[in-house]
């Protein structure tokens, strides 16, 4: 008979039976076996899995030390050598939900094992961390424990069995926002015609792609004195030194480059080119200044229109590149730009 799977449970101080708000500042601690809901779950696990340990942390402690607390919690979890982690359920407790989510993130990144949790859909932990855990939808108070526990356990057992998980609504978890391909019965055009017929008749239909809410960034206030401003160039047009030293991909870029242009009055086909796969590169290769205007900015520098052109430009290929990747690139190099005293950035695309 196959060995039983090992579950470690994460709870806050209240469900971990240490105390109420007065104990919310306790640091992470571990216990052998299950406590509270984790103990209650044992009978649901049949012979397939054991709760080998419980890790408890106070909500306030976690909230005030998210990164270090997550790290400590993961270390304690890892000491039990689990196959899966269950966190919560947190219902509508915001700090607890965020802690469960942060633990899920750290567990999936550090230990690479699945996490099951349970929350009320409006708990901020859902939106922040749904990518990292299979979260069962619960009601907004602990009165829903009796209902949530079997759902979470069944989901955990299914994941442990290695069976392929179906659609979120069929398996009983909230969509994690991970888009996956699958083949269906009808071709897309037929599905579109059928969806339109339903929409025209006022019948219920289900979109295959729920539109996201985009994060919009407000423009910064204008710079009043350009003659003293340090200007940097950032581009998604793919301009790179000849030969594309970092091998930035023609599409779906996984990286960006940072290159020194302090020695250039203008760019040319002898020294730069584009790595971008989304347009005819002839004109960009012929004169890379068409994508990043180094020549014009040098003129402006000499004429005193701008204070200075920053010595590095940052570049990637925007073609099909995931928004999450772009965000990650910019989060990194925006810090460098600030540290280098750059006042404004000219963003060029293609």
């Amino acid at each position: 008979m196959a060995a039983k799977s090992r579950i470690v449970w994460y709870l806050n101080q209240f469900f971990g039976q240490i105390g109420g708000e007065d104990k919310a500042d306790i640091p992470p601690q571990k216990h052998e076996g299950g406590i509270g809901p984790a103990a209650g779950a044992t009978r649901l696990l049949k012979d397939q899995a054991d709760v080998v340990g419980t890790v408890i942390c106070g909500d306030t402690y976690f909230g005030e030390n998210v990164e270090s607390a997550a790290k400590e919690v993961v270390e304690l979890i890892a000491s039990f050598n689990p196959d899966i982690v269950i966190a919560g359920p947190a219902f509508n407790a915001g700090r607890y939900g965020v802690a469960c989510g942060a633990v899920a993130k750290a567990v999936s990144e550090e230990l690479n094992i699945p996490v099951v949790s349970g929350m009320y859909p409006e708990n901020p932990g859902v939106d922040m961390y749904k990518n990292y855990a299979y979260m069962v939808e619960t009601v907004n108070s602990a009165a829903g424990m009796r209902q949530a526990l079997p759902q979470m356990i069944n989901l955990a057992l299914k994941i442990l069995s290695g069976a392929k998980l179906g659609l979120p609504q069929d398996e009983g978890y909230m969509p994690r926002g991970i888009r996956k391909n699958l083949f269906v019965e009808e071709r897309g055009s037929k599905r579109a015609v059928d969806m339109l017929l339903k929409k025209l008749k006022g019948e219920e239909f289900e979109t295959e792609f729920p539109m996201p809410d985009f994060d919009r960034v407000d423009p910064q206030p204008a710079i009043k004195d350009m003659s003293n401003a340090k200007i940097a160039i950032v581009t998604s047009g793919g301009i790179v030194p000849k030969g594309n030293p970092e091998k930035i991909e023609a599409s779906s870029a996984s990286k960006y480059g940072k290159y020194d242009i302090s020695g250039f009055d203008k760019l040319s086909e002898a020294d730069h080119e584009t790595a971008h796969g989304g347009y005819d590169p002839t004109y960009a290769d012929e004169q890379p200044d068409r994508v990043i205007p180094v020549d014009v900015l040098r003129d402006m520098e000499k004429e005193g229109v701008i204070g200075e052109l920053h010595r590095y430009f940052y570049t990637t290929v925007g073609n099909g590149t995931a928004v999450a990747s772009s965000k990650m690139f910019a989060t990194e190099f925006a810090q460098e730009l600030i540290a280098d005293g750059v006042d404004a950035v000219i963003l060029t695309s293609t």
């Binding site: 926002g177 888009r179 996956k180 599905r191 969806m195 979109t207 295959e208 539109m211 996201p212 928004v323």
Partner: peptide, 19 residues
């Protein structure tokens, strides 16, 4: 990884989409 925003633009009016 399927975790990023799928389209470069969106609208609440686009409530019926085939992908």
């Amino acid at each position: 990884d399927g975790a990023s925003q799928s389209l470069a633009d969106s609208s609440p009016k686009a409530d019926a989409v085939v992908t």
